[in-house]
Design a protein around this nucleic acid. Structure first.
Ligand SMILES: [Zn+2]
Ligand SMILES: [Zn+2]
Length: 720
DNA sequence: AGCACGCCGACT
DNA sequence: GTCGGCGTGCTC
């Protein structure tokens, strides 16, 4: 660290334009005795507090009155300046998402690099980088985890298969062509790999690897990464949060060696910094991580892979609302590095790019191990007599699987026992006092409680109706817990295992529950979307889907797209190791395209239909959207703010070609005593929309003074 | 966003 | 009398 005022200054005062993580536009000028390179972090006093900022530019004169300018406290020179391409990426993100530079540059760094106290305390010992370098090994906890992971695979082939998750082409015991380079490829894999290698040879471009669950996409990523590493470059492999398991890490390590860095949000600060340093110093050849790994400097980057590119977890939901997939494509393009997007159900944005020829489309139409895809049955629930939500067909199928010793999965995307409690005599329902939403009945231990899924509030279940005293209040509908209870009682001999966010929180780690399922300690699994990702269950022969229609009723135009992806994913759990698997989807609307396309495992048909609809309605990907959001105690104030914003926008010359909708309250207006509303902007071209926002947004802070607590802009919203 | 200052209600 | 409530305003 270079203390300010240290010797060897030039004597000339310069002004450093510093980016700070504050929601204020622009940069802040600080004085210093010599120039400092852009991309270097500095410690400064801002207002009353110490902050870490990043130098963006050097100026000869301050942009504000000289008496307001303060000196740099310290130049944090324990790291070289951030590289130019990294600064370009951050600049693009700040510009595209309409946020100040500092709100991108600093939050994407490992936390210890942006905390001023990490450099000042008595125990700071030269700062976080020195401390990390002094203990180059991983932390004790990390070593323990690694040791445990390595101890597991007695059968390495099997471990690699489960681990690489959805898409490892599993080496079979009898596979004759297997060698150190990995399992033998199918014909389709070989063709796709050739296409990917052409992309690599071309040096840039985007490919969409479209392959059904189990078609072996992961194997192709690994081979491509191997090739890139052999050429002396680094590979960045992004995966959804839920897929980044110790097993995946272990299998990548087994295949690509120890020069692997892993970055995700659940790492300790020390481990995260060490991984980040390893990747940014070029010591790691491969970086495996979740969306936040996208912002890691990689000096020798040669390949970016985004697995399950349609996954919602690539979109950050708090702070800077960026899409790691979109930024990955930008970074690849900027650096002239190939980008591979993989999915069984690509986002329609990506699919359209592939159809238009912007992206190279490579398909893996079949499962790698030649098991047929499961047979799908739609069961019409309109005229069925239901038993706790189950049709006789599904119950019969469950019974049949039980008799044959197979495993089944009942999928219901709703946690808890019942979504609402209701009084039969009056209008009382279990309403949350802080939200416009029902409190959900949960079984906790042996007792029941009411829980709000939106604000986290909890309360005991009343013994009788609080309004009229009727003791006979009833749970309405069902969630995983009630389904679990029903199945246990309906099939007394069966071992029923529930896997959802509550079960994994309560009974220890998710991995332990999944391990029980894998070990065959359950006949019927009951789960939410948590079970539909990343995990294969060897003996799983039947998947039953309850309540799929709930996702269809959403106002959001992307609801069918998400439902289709969800159903394909959960259907893909069945029959991974043996044939004869079956999926039963209960629905009131079997004629809907989503379900008809699902019957044939036909993504292309679904996508063509959905795209046609989007084109007719002028929706993405045929238009660009932005959402202006506002929060207030009273939704009226939020709506008024948005109405004025709309009037201002319409008065601007930049409004030409931009459709500005009406301000509307959110579907769930109040969450934790805050009421929300939004205003949708839409235009056919991206440029017009962004020009309008650039003219409109700077004035809104002033407009929001008063009853509006908060406002924000979301570019390319994925839920509206 | 923090973090101050600032001016009115109930507490030792 | 002051402890603290959060309204308002500023931060290079
Ligand atoms: Zn009542
Ligand atoms: Zn609530």
């Amino acid at each position: 660290m270079q203390p300010s005022g240290a010797p060897a200054g030039t004597g000339e005062t310069v002004y450093l334009a510093v980016a700070l993580d504050v929601p204020l536009p622009g940069l802040f000028d600080y004085s210093h005795d010599r120039p400092v390179a852009p991309g270097v972090r500095v410690r400064v006093i801002f207002g009353r507090r110490a902050m870490v900022g990043m130098v963006w530019a050097v100026r000869e004169a301050p942009g504000v009155a000289a008496d307001r300018v303060r000196p740099i406290e310290a130049v944090l020179d324990d790291l070289p300046p951030m590289p130019a391409d990294w600064l370009r990426l951050a600049e693009f993100a700040a510009h595209y998402y309409h946020r100040p530079l500092g709100e991108v540059l600093l939050p994407v760094l490992p936390p210890s690099l942006r905390r001023p106290a990490a450099y000042t305390g008595a125990r700071s010992a030269g700062g976080p980088v020195c401390r990390a370098d002094r203990r180059p090994g991983a932390s004790r906890a990390a070593r323990k985890r690694k040791g445990a992971a390595q101890a597991v695979p007695a059968d390495a082939a099997d471990a690699a298969e489960t681990a690489a998750g959805a898409d490892a082409a599993a080496p079979q015991a009898a596979d004759p062509v297997r060698d150190d380079a990995g399992p033998a490829l199918t014909e389709a894999q070989t063709r796709a790999l050739a296409g990917l290698r052409e992309l690599l040879a071309a040096g840039a471009g985007v490919a969409l690897l479209h392959g059904v669950t189990g078609s072996g996409k992961t194997e192709l990523y690994l081979r491509l990464a191997q090739q890139v590493i052999a050429a002396g470059r680094q590979a960045l492999l992004l995966v959804p949060e839920i897929n980044l398991t110790p097993q995946l890490e272990q299998s990548v390590r087994a295949r690509l060696g120890d020069r692997l860095a892993v970055i995700h949000s659940r790492l300790s600060e020390g481990d995260r910094l060490r991984a980040w340093l390893g990747a940014s110093r070029g010591q790691a050849d491969i970086l495996l991580g979740t969306r936040l790994a996208l912002f890691t400097p990689l000096p020798r980057l040669g390949l970016i892979v985004v697995d399950e590119e349609h996954d919602a977890s690539y979109k950050q939901q708090d702070g800077l609302r960026y899409s790691a997939r979109d930024l990955a494509v930008w970074r690849g393009h900027d650096l002239g590095v190939p980008v591979v997007l993989g999915s069984a159900t690509p986002s329609l944005e990506t699919w359209r790019h592939a159809q238009e020829g912007d992206y190279r489309l490579l398909s893996l139409p079949e499962r790698a191990q030649a098991q047929p895809l499961p047979e799908i049955r739609l069961v019409d629930t309109r005229r069925a007599r239901l038993e706790q939500g189950f049709t006789p067909q599904l119950l019969d199928a469950l019974e049949d699987r039980l008799a044959r010793g197979g495993q089944s999965l009942v999928f219901i995307n709703r946690r808890g026992y019942a979504p609402v409690l209701r009084c039969p005599s009056c209008a009382w329902v279990s309403q949350c006092r802080r939200c416009t939403a029902h409190m959900v009945l949960h079984r906790l231990g042996g007792r029941h409680v009411l829980q709000c899924h939106h604000c986290g509030d909890a309360m005991p279940v009343p013994r009788a109706c609080p309004d009229c005293g009727d003791p006979d209040i009833q749970p309405m509908g069902r969630g995983t817990q009630r389904v679990e209870e029903f199945l246990a009682q309906r099939f007394p001999g069966a071992r029923v295992l529930r896997i959802d966010a509550d079960a994994t929180r309560l009974k220890g780690s998710a991995e332990a529950l999944f391990a029980r399922a894998h070990a065959g300690e359950a006949d019927i699994l009951v789960g939410t979307q948590m079970v539909s990702k990343g995990h294969d269950f060897a003996r799983l022969g039947l998947v039953g889907v309850l309540n799929a229609d709930a996702m269809l009723f959403s106002q959001d135009f992307r609801a069918p797209e998400r439902l289709f992806a969800q159903l394909m994913q959960v259907a893909g759990r069945a029959g991974r190791r043996e044939g004869g698997a079956q999926v039963i989807v209960q629905t009131d609307y079997p004629e809907q395209t989503v379900y008809q396309a699902l019957l044939r495992h036909d993504y292309a048909r679904f996508a063509a239909h959905a795209l046609e609809e989007r084109r007719d309605l002028g929706l993405p990907p045929f238009s660009s959207q932005a959402l202006l959001t506002a929060q207030a105690v009273q939704v009226r104030d939020a709506l008024d703010f948005l109405a004025v914003a709309r009037a201002r926008a319409r008065a601007l010359p930049e409004a030409a070609g931009v459709r500005i909708h009406d301000p509307v309250p959110l579907r769930i207006v109040r969450v934790a005593r805050v009421e929300r509303a939004q205003l949708l902007f839409e235009s056919d071209g991206r440029g017009a929309l962004h020009r309008l926002l650039r003219a409109l947004l700077p004035g809104l802070d002033e407009l929001a003074r008063g009853a509006v607590q908060h406002w924000g802009i979301e570019i390319d919203p994925q839920e509206i």
